[in-house]
Write a protein that binds this DNA or RNA. Structure first.
Length: 297
DNA sequence: AGTGCGGCCTGTCCGC
DNA sequence: TGCGGACAGGCCGCAC
């Protein structure tokens, strides 16, 4: 579910509340997530003090230190919210909700609850450098850093004949962009989702990288997008869905040109685009294989 | 090496 | 009102 803005919204809400808190207890109600939660996780966490809450892609990294123990007991709790996960800080008196799978009790009498109906998320423990964890080591560039630019995007898309939408959604290239923000950024950049990645012009690459940064930044400011059930660490929804230009708007008029927004399936994911604003120009590539299966104009 | 697909889960919505 | 099927924001692991 949550993409970069929702994870970052969660991180920003939780970081000041969690830092310097000591973990009093941890209870696993249902450890059957994307990967099983280690049964000894509570033992690892108990007595530890939270040092920081960072983000890498859609992963949250909670650094934990055991002040009175050896350095070997320090480590990082790696959290992924999957499709439907959320973290909420609340009172221990509040009754458990269905799908509250893990809870972490803190020294200021608050409890952090991990809620995830579809259980596609994960809670992992590592004592090594979390960035070297197998799941994080292969992650791509952070889109909100200066390293991510039009030049970077242009260079990195050269070998890829697949659709540009699939490229920007692949976390091994760029992290944090899921189906919503991929559709939105491509609309803003006026690029058809099915255009071949390697057919991106330098101008398009610069526009697209700018729009990716813009849409993600604006979504963070709005507290993320709540389509069904995303809530932040205080239990509140995001507001960016009110500004979505194309996502989930099939059959409705484009706000720029009034043509009807189209939906079609690309890599088993719904793509939304405006056929007028995002005209597809296959003649921009001379690669025959990139033309395969495409309708003659 | 790049690409596309199946699968993991539950909840919601829509048509019958 | 009930039921079946499609679909949903992610991403690994596997064939080709």
């Amino acid at each position: 579910m949550p993409e970069l803005p929702e994870v970052e919204t969660t991180r920003q809400g939780l970081a000041p509340q969690l830092t310097q808190q000591v973990i009093i207890n941890c209870t696993i109600h249902n450890g059957r997530l994307r990967w099983p939660v280690a049964p000894d996780l509570p033992d690892r966490l108990k007595g530890g003090m939270i040092q920081s809450l960072q983000r890498r892609g859609k992963y949250l990294l909670c650094a934990i230190q055991h002040p009175h123990h050896t350095a070997t007991r320090t480590g990082t709790l790696i959290i992924h919210l999957g499709m439907s996960g959320s973290l909420r800080l609340t009172s221990p008196d509040e009754p458990l909700k269905k799908h509250d799978h893990v809870e972490i009790e803190l020294s200021h009498r608050q409890v952090l609850r991990y809620h995830d109906p579809r259980r596609f998320g994960a809670l992992l423990w590592t004592t090594a450098d979390p960035l070297q964890h197998p799941l994080l080591r292969t992650l791509g560039i952070e889109p909100l850093t200066d390293n991510f630019s039009g030049d970077w995007l242009y260079q990195r898309t050269r070998p890829y004949r697949s659709a540009i939408k699939a490229f920007i959604m692949n976390s091994h290239h760029i992290v944090g962009i899921g189906n919503i923000y991929a559709n939105e950024a491509l609309f803003m950049a006026q690029i058809h989702p099915q255009q071949a990645a390697h057919a991106l012009t330098m101008t398009q690459a610069h526009t697209l990288s700018d729009q990716i940064k813009s849409v993600l930044t604006r979504a963070i400011t709005q507290g993320g997008t709540t389509l069904r059930d995303f809530i932040n660490s205080q239990g509140q929804p995001g507001y960016f869905q009110q500004q979505l230009q194309v996502y989930d708007r099939a059959g409705q008029p484009c706000w720029r040109c009034h043509q009807l927004i189209q939906r079609h399936f690309l890599n088993q994911r719904a793509s939304y685009y405006c056929p007028h604003c995002q005209r597809w120009e296959p003649q921009t590539t001379h690669d025959k294989t990139a033309m395969k299966g495409k309708k003659t104009p």
